[in-house]
């Protein structure tokens, strides 16, 4: 074992981690609101809207992330005939894919608030959108905070799939250092430790909110 290699490459690893975290944050920041809209669509009385939203969720949840990534990375430029920037296709794929999962979390959160609060809002002359915005969603988000954080952990772990298209997030960075220095054990142990620290801390935060909600 030679841990010198980790110390020497630490800044590089950290820049990989930052890229992984950036991708996670950007994805979550956009897939969550998109998920909210889809969840509201699923609960709509308009058949076409709930049908389309349900189809979206089911299709995306029945496919592996890597396939969705391929779709955006290889097929979309092929179909549109335009060159799409790597990072753009990665981010779009992540947003679309995880929106389906966020939608399911938001949907159960909304349902936990209950129809009587909605009726109270509507009966006071608020529109359906205002009722959602001011009455239902604030309560739903509080109830689903632990599940949302857990989902963000899944997004963070999911960022490793961009390895396959050579985007230098944490795993890809570590792999190329391992190859260059021929020190795979040290590098993969270190990377595992970094993933563990990030994910475990986040899950502790989630548990904290779970207790707070109870």
């Amino acid at each position: 074992m030679d841990w010198q290699v980790i110390i020497a490459n630490f800044p590089l690893l950290m820049s990989g981690l930052v890229k992984s975290l950036q991708l996670t944050v950007v994805s979550a920041l956009f897939s969550f609101p998109l998920g909210c809209l889809i969840a509201i669509g699923r609960l709509s009385h308009r058949r076409w809207l709930s049908g389309a939203s349900t189809a979206f969720v089911n299709v995306l949840r029945s496919n592996p992330l890597i396939l969705i990534l391929f779709w955006f990375y290889f097929l979309v430029p092929l179909i549109t005939g335009r060159n799409v920037n790597d990072l753009t296709s990665i981010i779009v794929a992540f947003i679309v894919f995880f929106a389906a999962y966020f939608a399911e979390i938001v949907r159960s959160g909304i349902q936990s608030v209950g129809v009587r609060q909605i009726q109270a809002g509507l009966s006071s002359g608020l529109t359906y959108a205002q009722t959602m915005r001011h009455i239902v969603l604030p309560q739903a988000i509080r109830a689903m905070l632990p599940a949302l954080i857990t989902q963000c952990i899944v997004v963070f772990q999911g960022t490793t799939v961009v390895y396959v298209i050579g985007y230098s997030e944490l795993l890809h960075t570590a792999a190329s250092i391992a190859e260059r220095t021929v020190r795979p054990v040290e590098l993969y142990v270190t990377v595992a430790a970094i993933y563990f620290i990030v994910c475990y801390s986040a899950s502790r935060i989630a548990r904290h909110f779970e207790k707070g909600a109870a």
């Binding site: 009587r116 009726q119 006071s124 608020l126």
Partner: peptide, 27 residues
């Protein structure tokens, strides 16, 4: 038409004052 419910249906995440002013302001 004001409506009053069996289980009150106040909004638990708002103060009493905010409960009352929400609809007059937004609606």
């Amino acid at each position: 038409v004001g409506m009053v419910f069996q289980h009150f249906e106040l909004y638990p995440h708002m103060t009493v004052l905010e409960n009352i002013t929400l609809a007059p302001i937004k609606a």
